[in-house]
Write a protein that binds this DNA or RNA. Sequence first.
RNA 1: GCGAGAGUGGCGGAAUUGGCAGACGCGCUGGACUUAGGAUCCAGUACCGAAAGGUUUGUGGGUUCAAAUCCCACCUCUCGCACCA
Length: 860
Amino acid sequence: MISEYHPHEIENKWQQYWEKENLFTVTELRDKPKYYLLEMFPYPTGRIHMGHVRNYSIADVVARFKIMRGHNVLHPIGWDAFGMPAENAAIEHKTHPSRWTYDNIAYMKSQLKRMGFSYDWNREIATCDVAYYRWEQLIFTRMFEKNLAYKKRSWVNWCENCKTVLANEQVEAGLCWRCGNEVTQKELDQWFFRITAYAEELLEGCSKLTGWPERVLTMQKNWIGKSEGTEIIFPLENGAGEITVFTTRPDTLYGATFMSLAPEHPLAVELAQGTSQEDAVTRFIEKIKRQNIIQRTAEDTEKEGVFTGAYCINPVTNRKMPIFVANFVLMEYGTGAVMAVPTHDQRDFEFAEKYDLPLVVVIQPPGENLDPKTMGAAYVEDGVLVNSDQFDGMPNRKAMTSITEHLASLNKGRKAVSYRLRDWGISRQRYWGAPIPIIYCAKCGAVPVPETDLPVVLPLDLAMLETGHSPLLYSESFLKVACPKCGGSARRETDTMDTFVESSWYFVRYTCPDYREGPLNKKKVDYWMPVDQYIGGIEHAILHLLYSRFFTRVLRDLGMVTQDEPFTNLLTQGMVRKETMRCPNHGWLLPDQDKGGVCGLCNVPVEIGRKEKMSKSKKNVVDPDDLIKRYGADTIRLFCLFASPPEKDLDWSDQGVDGSFRFLGRVWRMVYANLETIKDTRSFQGKNDDLPEDLKGLRRKVHQTIRKATEDIEERFHFNTAISAIMELVNSVYQLEPSPADSPFRGPVLREAIETTVILLSPIVPFIAEELWRGLGYTESIVKAPWPHYDPAVAAEEEMEIVVQVNGKLRSRITIPATAAEEKIKAAAQEDERVRQWTEGKTIVKVIYVPRKLVNMVIK
RNA sequence: GCGAGAGUGGCGGAAUUGGCAGACGCGCUGGACUUAGGAUCCAGUACCGAAAGGUUUGUGGGUUCAAAUCCCACCUCUCGCACCA
């Protein structure tokens, strides 16, 4: 009786063994190449979901594979543990965010262990731990000293639901990225990180990130949004100042007939003051500010504005230009003021039509003659300048430079670069975050907490408030503090840092999680950094990855790290999707509410929806715990890796999971059915020539499989094809007939095949592999077994099958020794019976031979 | 609108450099074993056709001895950006 595959009898045992033996604990070693593998750390929501399982399964294959290939692999994990959901959950469940967070961490940690992931748990980090965020506070104060952290009053994105500010990156289509609530504008004092100081470097760095997906780099470049143009100064008509604009079209300057200001532009109110337009301007600005971002930034929103009553002067034409406030001008981009050229910009054109403003054509398209009176739209293409004094007749591209130079000589402008990227607002009016280490003193202003007074510990004895406001605002013991400079009474900053700050440097801290002398131990950082392979979801393509690149440069400039870029290679895995089911009466349905195609509640036919990202709201999630109970961790890992390559979306299939489980059973039976034959032998070591054909063939398959699996894992991370190759090998073992006069080599060759299968599978399904490995008689963990090498001579086919085409159509195949020469192959192809049926009576014009693949005969 | 990516059997996917389209798995069909099979093992399975053979990688063209792969036009889907001056 052959034993059966029962995952539960083996998985816990081996997980505990690996942990007890500290198999995945690493230190800096000089005699092995280092490999730093990292997954995006999870937010401790309570339980892991399939997205985590997929992400971490992919990474675990790489980690275990690299270990077996002789690398010193750093594979850490931790918790992105600060943030709002903890506060909301605490309010809802009448507990404390700290309690909620640490409970979740404990449970999720047990789940990750149960999955068999090869983490070095000694390096675990929870960002809400003061041992972590204290160093973040130190980095903040260093950034403050270098003027990389600063405070300013500004209009910020505000989510009323979350009662906090959001960074631009956290506003998605005008909605809060976390709760989906509408985002409004609010004027507040806020702390900012000067990421714009690194805009150019972050942009240029993109070209060096050859190990990143093009898609992500494009998104980052777009986000940074560099545009080159010209800054032009327009003096006010009354001589009391000037307006600076940024334009990418200085060639159209002679056609600028009015000026548009953003409603938030300081001059908007100022210019109208005391004029008859004052009232109208104020009312207009109030109206615009009440609009939400979606309305305001939608392209189809009608352009509207109001005259301020003031004028400025076009520096080259001396034309008097009325100054408007316009809804479509953004304060966040350029200077918040736009020179309006209605003839050559569509927005300005629409605006001019509405308010009857003058049009002057300054660029003529080739072979045409634009007339302002008959133009139906702005002309935005290239052409030749007209109405532009000495620049008349010049191609407009050339005029961009010439006019800019002309302006510079008049002291009225200069070449300039503008970025879409804004400084990173990091203040959050929330409790569950790292306190910003600043003290406000009436006399000394904002004073950073001195290094010796750090950390500013987040008090854990405060009760949450139903309103969602931060309890720090009402904690006297937290608020009251002496000014570090003058000793007078002062007040602490109550804002905490955006949690993206924690995730911007956790990967460096993993190299020295217990270091107490400072944020980072340079020696260890230099050994491990940069991360060789980072793996995570595409949803962080901009936010987290851009901040991390920024922070790495800041740390570099603070002398704490050596690298510019944190992540050499990036893999963004696809989503896990599953079919959705809907009942017309009851909405989304859980799988077990579907009773054979009808809703279990009302017997109405169920509508099968398309496959969508797993989400609780659509009720199409599967719970890893349930799957572990049913199939064990190995089956889940195998399915996640086999169903599609990592970068593509994975469609969940219950039947596919069954299939994965069946395959593991098949592997199990393969080992135990042959155990008698192979247990007292060693893998075949002799010469291939001594082997009978069937065994020679099996050996060939073994070595071909090693080659294929190694290449697929190492070079492409295409575990699905590696697994299918291993499945083929297993099929080959099953196909091996017991020969009548059993060869003495049968045992050794079978042993080689079976052992290889188990080893190649071990990074993918480590539990069953470890168990079978021991079953084969080994006493040391399979983790310590070296990855097998293939012998090219053994893998080489002795015969090759050549495809024979006639006029490009497949007509026959011939089998011929692999050593056959080209002429012989061509001759054999021409003589082939089936080929001759097609070539009979025709002239062979040409014979093409593709080595080892095909012969194509062109006939007439 | 701009930018990026994708489109291959009933399904997930494979085809790495222009050279056998559909590996592997799911599902389905049949067989063996069996009291039984939703276990296991074996075989078959793109489409049309009795066969010979023909057709087939979103659509239409092109380059080539040869195209899923390269080029042009178009369609569909996904993602990102979206009044950025």
